[in-house]
Simulated assay, not measured.
Amino acid sequence: MENTKGISRARFIAGAAAVGLAGAVLPASRAAATTGESRHRGLKHRGVVYTVGAGETPGTAWSAARMCRDIRVIRDELHADTVDVTGDGVDRLTATAVEAAERGLHVWLQPTLGDVPEREILDSIAECGRFAERLRRQGASVDFSVGCEFWLFVPGIVPGETVLDRVDNLQKGNVDMARMQRRLARFNAKAAAVGRSVFHGRLSYAAAQDEEFEPVDWNLFDVVGIDYYSCFRQPADHVRELRPYQRWGKPLAITEFGTCAYAGAPEAGGMGWNIVDYTKEPNEIKGDPVRSERTQAAYLVDLLQVFESMNLYAAMVFEFVTPDAPHRPDNPRYDLDLASYAITKPVKDDPDDPASGWQWEPKEAFHAVARQYGRRARTAPRGHHG
């Protein structure tokens, strides 16, 4: 299998639910008299995650021209007001952040460099944070997140040389949880300190949704960020699960949420991607999942309605496009888009050529989110983007 730098984020959204482990509990809650959410109704920022990885093949390599077109679509057709610019490669991150800011979008900038020495990750945080600060001083609306699920990406917190090695060790129970959480807390503190030293706007971090698995001292940050992949039949159950994160008295952002486009995918949570057999070349779909774009669309709309009802600070759909998971309507066995959380589907000019050109097409989820965001945009007061 390719190294972890070449693995799409959608293919290892492990999350605490997938690991199934528990550890220390967060500090006792404190009263939250007035949160950042209380000054607005509904979601303040309606967004989508836009990943800027290098691409796994020449055909899916990052393209500035394609990115610019995508950002325009995100604003004008998806009706999002926020782009969560994430991934590795400082040049790609900053170019995308600039494009989003120039288009009047709120920028949530989040570097996610992984499987390199700790010092390199901190240096990347510093470089991206300095750039975010320059954008902020120029008048752009910017939040800066120091990273995502450090236990997954940063070597030395969980045993294992790569992301997949660390997930494997967690699933097999080959981890001292108390030691892991101490190491995680130390790195969180380092990352927050670096972020504070270069960025003077709202600082955040994207944590797994299980507080017992990944306890975070949110005193280090201005915005609580949660990657959220739960599935409940009743909206009240989502509210009940998310309410504890508001006890810190700080705005709550859903930094990722989503599901794949097949029947039963929401129940798989953050492991919906695991219907692909990556040991085979070419990769192929395991079993016989039934494609259902309607399932994905309905899940996203249901959660957006929950987030609106809770007056959350932000919610970012995961994700806009996953170039390395092409749609194969002619051959379901190789329809890797089934395992993608993206709201668009890549279609290659030549499905059998890794270097082939491609374009994305909107899924039902794209249209559903666009309707939801569009309704909210029409009723939002002036200045709502700030």
Rank of each mutant, 00 (worst) to 15 (best):
W218Y: 15
G264Y: 10
G270M: 07
F232E: 09
N311T: 05
D237S: 15
L220R: 11
R240G: 08
M310L: 12
F199R: 03
P251I: 00
L312I: 07
L304K: 09
E214K: 04
G270R: 00
G201A: 04
L220W: 12
L252G: 07
A207L: 03
R243L: 15
A193R: 14
G225N: 07
L203S: 02
Y262F: 15
L300Y: 15
F221R: 00
G287S: 05
L304N: 11
Y205L: 01
S204C: 06
R247E: 15
N311D: 14
E256D: 12
D210F: 06
A268I: 00
F213G: 04
Y299E: 03
Y205V: 00
P235Y: 07
M310Y: 09
E267Y: 08
R202C: 02
G272T: 02
Q296H: 07
R202M: 03
D210W: 11
W218S: 06
H238V: 10
F257K: 07
E284N: 11
M316K: 01
L312F: 10
K250M: 09
I226W: 10
G249V: 10
A325K: 06
E281V: 14
H200L: 02
R291C: 12
L220G: 04
P244A: 13
F307S: 02
L252A: 07
A325E: 11
F232L: 08
S197G: 12
P282W: 08
M310V: 03
E281L: 12
L300G: 03
E281Q: 14
R233F: 10
M310D: 06
K280A: 15
P326D: 03
K286H: 01
I285L: 01
N311F: 06
L203N: 01
E256M: 05
F307M: 11
A193S: 14
K286D: 07
N219L: 05
D302M: 14
P215W: 07
I254A: 06
Y299K: 03
E319M: 13
G225V: 10
A297Q: 04
G258I: 04
A191F: 13
W248D: 09
L304Q: 09
A208C: 11
